[in-house]
Amino acid sequence: MKKQFFLNLSLALLLCTGTTFAQRVDTVAVLSPSMHKTVKSVVVLPASYDQSPEKRYPVVYLLHGHGGNYAAYVNQTRPQLPQDASNMEFIAVCPDGGRDSWYWDSPADPKNRYETFVASELVKYIDKHYRTKADRTGRAITGFSMGGHGALWLAFRHPETFGACGSMSGGVDIRPFPDQWGMKRWLGEYADHPKVWDDYTVATQLYRLRPEPHVLGGRSNDWLGKSEVRRPAIIIDCGTDDFFYGVNLALHEAMLHNNIAHTFIVRPGSHNHDYWRNALEYQLLFFHNYFDREAQPQ
C-alpha cells in the first residue's frame, strides 16, 4: 500500500515537472503561392519549447473533416492537444483544409491545391519558422473523416515527406458516395469522369506502397529494394457504426492481401468527435513510438 502511494506520488511529481512551463498555441497565416492566398493554421508548441533552445521537435499534422476548419482540434476534437504535445514533446500543426477540399490538387479547379499546400508549402513554412526535425522521420500526418482521407492521400503520395500516417473514420474510398460532401465540385460528376474518381481515391493508391520485402531483422519500415523512399508507418481506426466502416474494412483487407504493414483498430462507435477524441490519443502514442524508434541509432 505504502509502495503504491509513493509510486503514484512520484508519477504526479513527474507530470507536474513536465508541465512547469506553459505550452503555446499560435495561429499563423501561411502564404500559399499555388493558390494565391493565405491559409490559417493552428500551431501547438510543447511546454519545453521555449526552455530548450537547442532541441528540435517532431511534427504531427492534423487534418480536419468536412465543414471544419483549422481550430477544430483545439476547440472540439481534442482540447487537451496542448497537453498531449507537452507530454509527448511534439509540435502539432492543424491547417485549414477548406470546407470541402478533400486535400486534393483538383483536376477540375486549378485554384484548389490543398495537396500542394499541406505537403509542400506548409511543411516548408513550419520547418523554416520552428525548430523541427526537418525530415520524414520527424513528421506524421493524420485526420478524421475528410481529413482521414487527406492524411493517407498525402502520405501515400509523398512518402519522402511523411514518415508516419493515420486515419480516423476516414473516407478512404470516395466512389460509393458520388453526390456527397462536395467532391464532384473538384472531380466532376462521377458518371462523366469515373477514371478521375478512381485515380483520386485512397483505395487505389496502394500500389505506391509496394509489398513488404522479405528481410531478416531491421526496422518495420525497411528500405524498398533500391528505392531511396521508405513506406510510412500506418495506423487506421474506424468505428463499427460509422458509415465509412465498410470502406475502411475493405482497405484493411486490401492492405493485408498486398502485405502492407499497418495497424488497424476497430471499436464500437460512430462518426463523431467523441470517437475521434479517443482515437487520436492512440494515434499520437503510435506516432510518439515511431519518432522514438527512428531516433535510435541503427
Score class of each variant (00 low, 15 high):
Gly171Phe: 00
Pro46Thr: 09
Arg293Lys: 10
Lys133Glu: 15
Asp237Cys: 06
Leu14Ile: 13
Leu216His: 01
His273Ile: 04
Asp199Lys: 00
Gly147Asn: 11
Pro95Glu: 06
Gly67Leu: 01
Thr240Cys: 06
Val266Asp: 02
Arg185His: 13
Leu13Arg: 13
Lys133Ser: 13
Gly147Gln: 11
Ile141Ser: 09
His271Gln: 06
Thr77Asn: 11
Arg277Ser: 14
Gly67Asp: 06
Met168Asn: 09
Val215Asp: 02
Cys16Met: 14
Ser120Pro: 04
Gly143His: 06
Pro159Gln: 04
Glu281Tyr: 07
Thr132Gln: 06
Ala134Gly: 14
Ala119Cys: 12
Thr142Ile: 08
Gly166Tyr: 02
Tyr245Leu: 01
Leu15Ala: 12
Val25Leu: 11
Gly188Trp: 00
Ala29Glu: 15
Pro95Cys: 09
Ser86Pro: 08
Ser52Ala: 10
Val215Phe: 05
Ser167Leu: 03
Ser270Ile: 01
His273Asp: 02
Leu9Gln: 12
Gly98Ser: 09
Arg157Pro: 01
Leu11Trp: 09
Phe156Met: 10
Leu31Asp: 15
Gly171Val: 04
Ile265Tyr: 00
Asp192Cys: 08
Ser41Val: 13
Lys3Glu: 08
Cys16Asn: 11
Gly143Asp: 03
Arg231Trp: 03
Phe264Val: 07
Val44Thr: 05
Phe144Gly: 14
Thr137Gly: 04
Pro297Val: 03
Ser34Phe: 11
Pro194Arg: 01
Pro178Glu: 05
Trp181Cys: 04
Gln83Gly: 03
Val30Asn: 10
Gly217Trp: 02
Leu7Asp: 15
Tyr245Asn: 05
Met183His: 00
Asp199Asn: 05
Pro107Asn: 01
Phe286Pro: 06
Pro110Ser: 15
Ser270Gly: 12
Phe291Met: 12
Leu154Ala: 04
Arg185Gln: 13
Ile235Met: 10
Val247Gly: 02
Tyr125Thr: 14
Val43His: 12
Lys226Thr: 15
Leu152Asp: 15
Val215Ile: 02
Thr27Ile: 13
Gly188Ser: 05
Met88Cys: 04
Pro194Thr: 01
Arg136Ile: 08
Leu11Lys: 14
Trp276Arg: 02
Asp50Ser: 04
His252Val: 03
His66Ser: 14
Arg99Gln: 11
Pro53Phe: 00
Asp241His: 09
Leu249Phe: 06
Gly239Leu: 06
Lys226Asp: 15
Ala119Arg: 10
Asp127Gln: 11
Leu154Gly: 07
Tyr70Pro: 07
His129Ser: 13
